[in-house]
Simulated assay, not measured.
Amino acid sequence: MAAWGEWLAGVRGVLLDISGVLYDGGEDGGSPIPGSVEAVARLKRSRLKVRFCTNESQKSRGNLVGLLRRLGFDISEGEVTAPAPAASLILKERGLRPHLLVHDGVRSEFDQNDMSNPNCVVIADAGEAFSYQNMNKAFQVLMELENPVLISLGKGRYYKETSGLMLDVGAYTKALEYACGIEAEVVGKPSPEYFRSALKEMAVEAHEAVMIGDDIVGDVGGAQRCGMRALQVRTGKFRPSDERHPEVKADGYVDNLAQAVDLLLQHADK
């Protein structure tokens, strides 16, 4: 397709979503999407800069990288942009003391934060911890504050595991927004600050980068609003209706990461 050459010409950096692009998670740790391990290796052997961008908020960045390495991916912790460590820094900078509604697997990212007398709520994909009791406690903390602050690690609607689609943090964030009459601050995709942080780490400009993700809104729409190009893979949470989304249209659709890498290595950085 001749248009690929135009869309991908001049790309110097590639941002890769993790869940649904590299692998599908699951109770057993999950499994790589066919062809993705070698696709990452090919990218890293090329002249293109690579950054992994995730909204994963059930695992610490270290545990996520450990899992990916066990699955065969060549990846280091320093190559990953994730919302929990970024949120921890924001809390420190602003003097915020969080009440955490998060998964136990990510609590270690907030070990250096003061959690006494909370003056904000941080919500992430808490999984089974999204009970009425825990949601109501977060609601009560917010309602007791004169200036309530709700920080959400991403705002995804759902994601894909090997067992099927799973409800994501966005639904619970919306519930607290509605109940408290506030708007959450999003740390993670599709926040512009998230993408700018990743671009800064790569030392490339937005117009020189392409995002590859499975989420038409969080990955594709978020990246495009920052001036990046974006490809959507037909793996992970992809649904055929995404190609007819009323507001977001990817620059291109590919069957999987392996096909995306084939196109990038053929046309990018020309």
Rank of each mutant, 00 (worst) to 15 (best):
E6D: 13
E6H: 11
L8S: 04
R12N: 12
R12P: 01
L15M: 15
L16R: 09
L16G: 01
L16W: 05
G20H: 02
L22R: 03
G26E: 02
S31E: 15
P32F: 06
I33H: 01
V37N: 00
E38F: 00
A39V: 04
V40D: 02
A41L: 11
L43N: 06
L43W: 01
R45K: 15
R45V: 01
R47T: 12
V50D: 08
R51C: 11
E56V: 15
E56Y: 07
S57D: 07
S57H: 12
R61W: 01
R61M: 06
G62V: 13
N63P: 00
L67G: 03
R69V: 14
R70P: 00
S76E: 15
E79N: 08
P83G: 09
A84Q: 05
P85H: 09
S88E: 12
S88A: 15
I90H: 11
E93L: 13
E93Q: 13
P98W: 03
H99E: 08
H103Y: 10
V106N: 00
R107L: 14
E109A: 07
F110C: 09
D111M: 05
Q112W: 05
M115D: 07
S116I: 05
P118F: 06
P118V: 07
N119T: 08
I123R: 00
D125P: 01
A129H: 13
Y132F: 15
M135K: 03
V141E: 00
V141Y: 04
E144M: 11
E146N: 13
V149R: 13
L153P: 04
G154W: 01
K155D: 09
R157L: 14
Y158H: 13
G164I: 11
L165S: 12
L165W: 10
G170N: 09
G170P: 05
K174S: 14
G181N: 10
G181R: 02
V187D: 00
V187G: 04
P192S: 03
E193K: 12
E193I: 03
F195S: 02
A198Y: 00
A203V: 07
A203T: 08
V204Q: 05
H207S: 14
E208T: 06
V210C: 07
I212A: 07
G213C: 10
D219C: 07
G221R: 06
R229C: 06
R229I: 03
Q232D: 00
Q232E: 14
V233H: 04
F238I: 09
P240W: 12
S241V: 14
N256W: 09
N256G: 13
A258N: 11
Q259E: 15
L265G: 07
H267Q: 02
